[in-house]
Design a protein around this nucleic acid. Sequence first.
DNA 1: TCAAAAGTGTTGACAATACACCCATGG
DNA 2: CCATGGGTGTATTGTCAACACTTTTGA
Lengths: 234, 234
Amino acid sequence: MTSSTSNFYAEENKIFVATDCIVFGFDDGELKLLIFKRRVAPHEGDWSLIGSFVKPSEDVDEAAQRVLKEITGLDNVFFEQSKTYGKADRDEGARCISVAQFALIRIDEYDRKLTEKHGAYWYKLEDLPKLVLDHDQMVTDALSKLRSRAKHQPIGFELLPEKFTIPQLQSLYEAIFQRKLDPGNFRKKVLSFEVLKKQAEKDKSASKRGAYYYMFDHEKYQNLLESGYNFEIL
Amino acid sequence: MTSSTSNFYAEENKIFVATDCIVFGFDDGELKLLIFKRRVAPHEGDWSLIGSFVKPSEDVDEAAQRVLKEITGLDNVFFEQSKTYGKADRDEGARCISVAQFALIRIDEYDRKLTEKHGAYWYKLEDLPKLVLDHDQMVTDALSKLRSRAKHQPIGFELLPEKFTIPQLQSLYEAIFQRKLDPGNFRKKVLSFEVLKKQAEKDKSASKRGAYYYMFDHEKYQNLLESGYNFEIL
DNA sequence: TCAAAAGTGTTGACAATACACCCATGG
DNA sequence: CCATGGGTGTATTGTCAACACTTTTGA
């Protein structure tokens, strides 16, 4: 704060702070987003991201965790801050800024009954309905952030089950970047990082031959990160 | 907001929102940061980033522009949002979240008298004093953001005077990335983008032979950006 | 036995790096 | 005339995309 702001510590300068979550999931070869239909005014009946006001006693990050837990039943979800939306007129109801955060969740783990109870659904990214306020923009921004992160760090793994095959991983990256990748080259690249542990079992669901399962080696990854390794995928 | 939040539209849920500016400048081959010594409580006498509360009637971005104008006299400064700091206990005075934004300014253009009047000074990045609250973290984060942006887009130009030489530009990038670059390769790379207009005059201040001035061609840059060109420097 | 997915190997084009070398000029 | 920084050319190395090829197995 500048030196001339002593009069600013006044109640009338306080404003609402919200957080909205852009929740990505991956299922059936498609990137999906968790949104819900508002059941209270304002904007009753409109589609919206999941969010909440931040309480004075809680961290902004905690607020996001709280909402997501409330709706999916999940703890310990991967979160990253996307961007803060601070236009004075962005919410016609009251002055309110919103800290957007994106989450990546394993779509096989969430609590279906809980989400349905809250009127929340998974939508394919391509056919999202119009969202309330500036939430469309939030999705666009978060998606581009997800892409740039996925390009340089293997965060994509957060969206897959613990055990996954290389072709599954490839299909995820194809969904994120919306383009086909060469199977041979993708495999070589991703294995060259040496952060995948090959399992003994195979997944036979997608082919007769079957594809070996792999697991992400968080420890090895941390070590490489700290020694400044550059994980450039694509 | 979730469906169970109607009671949240209550005055006691409002909190203070501030913005803090990480103001980078480039001078004398060094990256510098504009900070100031607080003259009012709390933390009187401590070094701090430049910032202000966001007024209920103004955009968060506007607030940053306002403060920077107040202290440097500059309008139309390059700004980018860095990150929002939302820990409940980050400011022991009052609950207050802060949206950090970094600015790049041409150090030859600012108003010296104005900054001095406000107790603000340019510090070399290497020997910054301890800053108030979580401002040290803000600087670290903004710096890493500056680096990743500078790597993929030529935002470095915002820090140089309108006319600059290739060696000057190189020296800026060396300051940003804290490592020496090969003059021949740097020149080739940066010219290969074809967004620099060569001028007729030379800068003779750094060598007897003199180096040609260049100017950034914003128009050409915009065109290339829109056609999806990848400006990867380094 | 064959279609289809998993996985391996090879190649050529191109980009990054290191570095040798010429240029211009003020002192 | 030479030290110094500006600027150009080139050889080597490494990386990436394309694609041919082999393996496996259920239907």
